[in-house]
Amino acid sequence: MVTAVLPLYLVLGLHLSPAAYGALDGLHTGATALLRLVGGYVADRVRRRKAVAGVGYGLSAFAKLGLVAAGGSLASIGLVVAADRAGKGLRTAPRDALITLSAPEASLGRAFGVHRAMDSVGAFAGPLVALAVLTAAGQSFDAVFVTSFCVAALGLLILFLFVRDHREARPPSGTVSPRAVGRLLRTAPVRRLVCAACLLGLATVGDGFVYLLLQRRESLSIGWFPLLAVGTSLSYLLLSAPIGALADRIGRLPVMLGGYGVLAAVYLLLHGPLDGPVLLGTVLFLYGLFYAATEGVLMALAGPVLPERLRTTGIALVQSGQALAYLGSSVLFGLAWQEWGGATASRWAAVAVVGVGVATAFLLRSSSPRSTDEQKGSPS
């Protein structure tokens, strides 16, 4: 709900410039990378991944109320956004580690596809609810934030009551330690994976920029803006599980690289030959396809490379590298938009995606599930 209206609230409501929005959006995702590492390490150390994830979800839930208390103060909003992303930093790696530890290795693509599809149900319904609340409350953003908090609190309750933790035997002394994390980073497959995640984050522009560029090109009214996220979520919802299963069959790396090729097409279409409903439908469908082919697939690609005892920490390393790079990407894109215009900025972003895709293919060329099976001597 909040993701759907926050760009509009900041740019149209508080009149932030593209550069200022880019800095805040980068903070929204990238500035909490350290907490991702802390959350991952603590979850592995205490073997309570569900509890660490719950703390992260709780922090993000209360941040919704913080947006109400912040009023129109940009500094206060920045702090609240940082708290919200701190919650995301704490929760994401333990949650994804639970998935990798609860599903067979050969089905990790399908498992993450199903998870992302379920997550997309909320992402699909959230903007619709936000639109309804805005309409009923006379375009009051505070009403959206309070409603979002109530929904988040309900989700947190369900997490603690019904979700099972994965509690393996206590690891031998020294297995989970800063020195062990350093050794993990020195292994070539993990090092290549983290480097690739950093490159991919650097070439990815935030959703808010994509939707704002669409809104400005098509002159969409405020009431229609949240529906842009609905279109992306619907595509993501329908495609994530089939794409995850496809990645298990033909290889996760080709599917992920194909997803970034789709992202390059999205950036080019933002100022391409299409317009009107055709442009909106095409971009939102392809944007959902991009997420379906990359977000869960990258975690499925990482799972078999990381040892079980440091699974959460390893996932946090990958996600933190991507988040820090995303911080730079958001700031750079915001500056480019402000200096050269949205059309030039989005075209250069497409060029960056293609270049990063080639570099990622080189880095991860031996990390596909098929190559891993062959190295282990597994039957095809």
Rank of each mutant, 00 (worst) to 15 (best):
V5N: 06
L10N: 06
G13K: 00
Y21K: 00
G22Q: 06
A23T: 14
L27D: 12
G30C: 06
G30W: 09
G30I: 05
T32Q: 14
A33D: 08
V38R: 02
G39W: 13
K50D: 04
A51F: 05
A51M: 03
V52N: 00
V52C: 01
K64R: 15
L67T: 09
V68Q: 06
A70T: 05
G72Y: 08
I77T: 06
K88M: 10
T92R: 10
T92P: 07
A93E: 00
A93D: 08
A97L: 08
L108C: 07
L108D: 09
G109K: 06
R110M: 12
H115T: 01
R116N: 07
S120K: 05
A123P: 04
F124W: 12
V129G: 09
T135D: 00
T135M: 01
G138Q: 09
V144W: 12
V144Y: 10
S148C: 06
S148G: 08
L157P: 04
V163C: 09
R170K: 12
P172E: 03
R183Q: 09
L184Q: 04
C195H: 14
V205C: 07
G206D: 11
G206M: 09
G206C: 11
F209V: 02
R216M: 08
R217W: 07
S219V: 01
W224K: 04
L228E: 03
L228C: 05
V230S: 13
G231A: 14
G231E: 04
S240M: 11
A241F: 14
I243K: 05
R249F: 09
V255Y: 10
G259Y: 15
G261M: 03
V262N: 10
A265Q: 02
Y267W: 08
P273M: 12
P273Q: 10
P277I: 08
L279N: 05
L279E: 03
L280I: 10
L280K: 02
G281Q: 07
T282P: 03
L284T: 08
F285N: 00
Y287G: 04
Y291L: 15
A293G: 11
E295R: 04
L298V: 09
M299S: 14
L301Q: 14
L301I: 06
V305W: 10
V305S: 04
L306D: 01
T312H: 10
T313W: 13
L324V: 14
S329F: 12
S329T: 00
V331I: 13
V331K: 01
F333N: 02
G341I: 09
G341S: 08
T344K: 04
A345E: 03
W348G: 13
V356H: 01
G357D: 03
A359M: 02
A361I: 04
T372Q: 14
E374R: 14
E374M: 11
Q375M: 10
G377D: 03
G377Q: 05
G377H: 05
G377K: 08
P379A: 15
